[in-house]
Each structure stands twice: as structure tokens, then as C-alpha cells.
Amino acid sequence: MQSEISTEAALAALEQPRTLFLSAVADLVGELGRLLVQDRDSEQGREQRSAASLGAFGAGRVDARRFAALISDRPVLPPAALEALGRARAVLSAIVTGGPEPFVVVVGPGEDVAVAVGAGLARLGRVFGAARVAALARAGAYRSSEHASLLEALPFARWNRGERALAPPLVVRVEGPRPRLSGLADLLNGAVKIALLAPASESPAPLALLVSPGVFVAQGSSLDLLERLRSSPAPGIVAILPERSSRFVHDPAGGDKLRDRLTVEYLSDVPPDDSRSRRDFRADEEQAQLALLIAAASGGSANGQVERVEDLRSDPAGLLAAWLLREASLPPPVDARAGAA
């Protein structure tokens, strides 16, 4: 069965963090607008603006010239700086009013998801680029030759901590059966939240390799996962996959120990397809990683884990054993526990 969650539904589920991001952008648009008006004005202009700002009740009652003289203005910026501010503001305005398009990334079959998402984030990074341009222009340090490219894109690797904490959520639609996701680990930082829609995925556990202590990682087929991603304070990724895929949630809020963070609802029993001419080692590797994680978690505390996996469709211990036997090259669970817990 194919995933029925549409891009629109995923966008709606992540509206709140996107709203926060857009609020910050809108506020900066306002702040820059003020600078642009203020600094362009002559003395007469200031008087007119003063009169306008006092409204109709002030008209005829407050002397706009005297009022203007009281209000200290910022130093007048040179034309080049104003021009840069204007361009920065235009970039920001376009994001505020431009609809959800910049927040959606579509990845074609066989394309590397991390590359596409990285490009999407870099494009959104022009918001921070514009903010930096504005700051540089105000400080008189803007050089068009050096800084103009900031208004086009800012790669995620160059976002600073504050900017990462403001990162907007993305909806990523992946076409094709074998999404390549491992490179995403570098992008799951700050406030980055990714809703990955992969209705044609055949990999049973594509996200298993992304599990790390501070990142919310979940895969399954329900929209509820997106709600959990939204409300988690951690960066994270949720993959919405066909029903036959494994289903698990790794939530950093669970605690310090892996067993408290990881809940596996269903472990896919799709066997490795030996009939194919070329076995997909990576998909198997991912599923094996998930199995390892379960082993590590359940080994940590028998009590804790049994409850969490008891609703597995089949016997988890048997499944694990099957995996471990088949994947003879894997290290035994005891070592894995030592490594992961």
C-alpha cells in the first residue's frame, strides 16, 4: 500500500515551526523597511514622516517639525548600503509572501537526497544571507563583490548556531524505491526538521543509519509522527513509508539511554531479495542497523524493552535471531550494546 500523506498534509503538520521562521523574516522585513525610509529622508521628509506617524489625531495638535526634531535618527547610510538593504529586504519579502514552495524539495529517482536537501536549505539560507547583508550594510562593511552571493544562497554548513536554531522545516518528496539518506546526518542539526515522503520506498528501514542520540528519527506511515516531530525540541526527520516498512521512533526526550529513546512498533520481515541479480546491500545494512539498535536497547534492560516491542507482529527475539544468524558477519549483540548504549 502506498503512503497517502500528501505534500500539503505534511506542510500543514509542520506549519507551526514554518510560521516561526516566517515571523522572524517578516519582522526583519519591518525593521529594514524602517531603515530604508528613515535614512532616505531629508529634513523635510522627516517632518512629513513625523506628521504621518502621529496620525490624524495628532494633525493640527502636535507640531510635526518640533516633534521630528526631538526624535533622534540613525546616521544616514550611503547609497550603496541602502541599495544592499533594499535588495536584502526584497529577498526576505519574497520568502514571506511566496507560499510554501521554498519549503518543499522533490528528489528524483536515484538522486542523492542529502544533496537535494542541502541545496534546498542553501536556497533558504539566503534569508540568513540577507540578514547578514543587512547587518553588514548597517555597519558599513558591505562589499558587493564579496557579499552579494549571500543573497542567492547560503550553504547549511555556513549557518551559525543562531541561524541553525531558526531553521525552517522541510517537506521532502522522494521518488524511486531506494532513497539514499545517509548523507542527511550532517544536516540534522539546530532546528532542522525534515518530513520525508517516500511512497515508493522498498527499503525496510531507510532511517536506521541516522539514529543518533540528539536527533528525533522516526519512520512509519502515520501523520501522527509528523506531529511528534513538530513538537520535539530536537532536530529530526520522519519518513512516511509504505506500510510494509519497519516502524520505529527514536525520541531524544526519552532519556539518556537508548532503550528509553527507541520504540520499535514493527520490524519489517521482508526478507532480503536473493533472487535479484544485484542485492541491495545498503537496504539490508539499514535493516540490520535497526535490528542492532533493538538488540542494544533490549539488552540494556529486559523489562524496559519487552513492553515496548510486545505488539510486534511477530516474535521480536526470533526475528532478531534470524537476522543475526543470516548476517554472520555482524558483531554479536553484546558488543553492539557496549558500543551503542
Binding site: S53, L54, G55, A56, F57, G58, R61, V62, F67, L70, I71
Partner: peptide, 22 residues
Amino acid sequence: IAPATIEECFHVMVTARRIAEA
């Protein structure tokens, strides 16, 4: 300050906010 008409009730808020801020 005191508005004298309903119309002024509207406009007085702009002036009040501006003076408060300035």
C-alpha cells in the same frame, strides 16, 4: 489625552502609541 468623537477614538490610538514610544 481624550478623543472627542468616535472617529477620534480610532485615530487617537495611533498618536498615543507614537507618543508613548517616542
